[in-house]
Design a protein around this nucleic acid. Structure first.
Lengths: 197, 197
DNA sequence: AAAAATCATTGATCTATGTCAATGGATTTA
DNA sequence: TAAATCCATTGACATAGATCAATGATTTTT
């Protein structure tokens, strides 16, 4: 993916919500930097500080933690048009608990905290956009927490299938299992069960 | 709790982050209304629209859903200085999935969407305060989701104890169980186990 | 204060999901 | 293209936590 195209996609994404004049576009070009990762490379590693937030132009990033027992817990798959960072670390400047790796060759734009504050100040509506984004993110998280605490593995898998039919096609099955908080074996059995009856 | 005292507490709460002059205080008095609920009364019921967000001055509200099997799932206990609403319903105007009930006699301030937009416009820094609040809320939710998906019941209870030592004292045990996503019996056994060995 | 309702505890079982192990298929690397 | 890894599937078994049921202990209502 070309850098010009990445900004173009980002402008289109933003213009769904806020109008951008030439000046605003210029500010964005100067604050968001373009980056690429090859499959299996890391955007962030646990223990480091998340200096950036990423907006995905092309590809897929996976955010995950490693729990006490050394098992990976996938928090999120971020595809085109989504954001990715360790919000806690980005906001607090403390070391990150999350790892973020590329599942495919991925092109994205990155923003640091200084850039973010600058944009909040210079581009009217941007802070509102971020607030609304996070509000919706929170709502999605509430639903997922609810599902995690009160639904069984099969029910959670069906919700995932319905909500992210594209992602299911795109990422390995054991990572879907890790997103759902179950073992690959259990997911395999759930799928078998759904197919046969 | 007196109405004057409630606003006073709210001003103190806000002034930790944003300075408030007389005009701002006046705007807040005109947009936030004072309300009381007795124990067991509802602030919001599933299916209704959440027209308001509440800021608790005194008392405790519990937010919960009822899942497919008719079981209650507690999402949050909101005590003094916390906020409560069904964010999804409040933002979208769709019917709420959450119930919010008073666990004690509770005094709080409520804000509707029009009031919120007005305050965002009139009081500099308020939207930023809300954004930061929600960001932190999201971070907390991420941690909780993580715990729900990768820790066992005892580990989750210990985290809850550590994070909310006051709330454990204040709410019935079976509601803590419902917050943790386990049965009251299991929580009772966990406690027994922690005490004896 | 008595009766009724709600809640916490404990025991006996049941079940969803995890764990360990083996096999074959699919990708990646050499 | 072969070798090496990684991944999905399946089976046998183990376990955390649920369910059902009974009993006291609190709390609420009368």
């Amino acid at each position: 993916m070309e850098i010009t195209q990445a900004y173009q996609l980002f402008f289109e994404y933003l213009e769904k919500t806020i109008p951008l004049n030439q000046t605003s576009q210029e500010i964005i070009r100067n604050t968001f930097a373009f980056r690429k990762l090859k499959k299996r490379q890391y955007f962030l590693q646990e223990g480091n500080i998340a200096y950036h937030t990423a907006w995905i132009a092309k590809g897929c990033l996976r955010t995950f933690t490693i729990n006490q027992n050394g098992m990976e817990q996938t928090m999120q798959f971020s595809v085109e048009g989504w954001w990715a960072t360790d919000m806690f670390s980005f906001l607090s400047g403390e070391p990150a608990a999350f790892n973020i790796e590329a599942l495919e060759d991925t092109s994205f734009l990155i923003l640091d905290k200084i850039g973010r504050d600058l944009i909040f100040e210079k581009i009217p509506g941007f802070e509102r956009l971020m607030r609304i984004l996070i509000e919706n993110h929170l709502v999605a998280h509430q639903k997922r927490l609810n599902a995690a605490l009160s639904l069984n593995a099969e029910e959670r898998y069906l919700i995932f299938l319905k909500k992210y039919p594209d992602i299911v096609q795109r990422v390995p099955q054991h990572l879907v299992a890790s997103y759902l908080g179950i073992t690959p074996e259990t997911l395999s059995r759930i799928r078998k069960n759904l197919i046969s009856g």
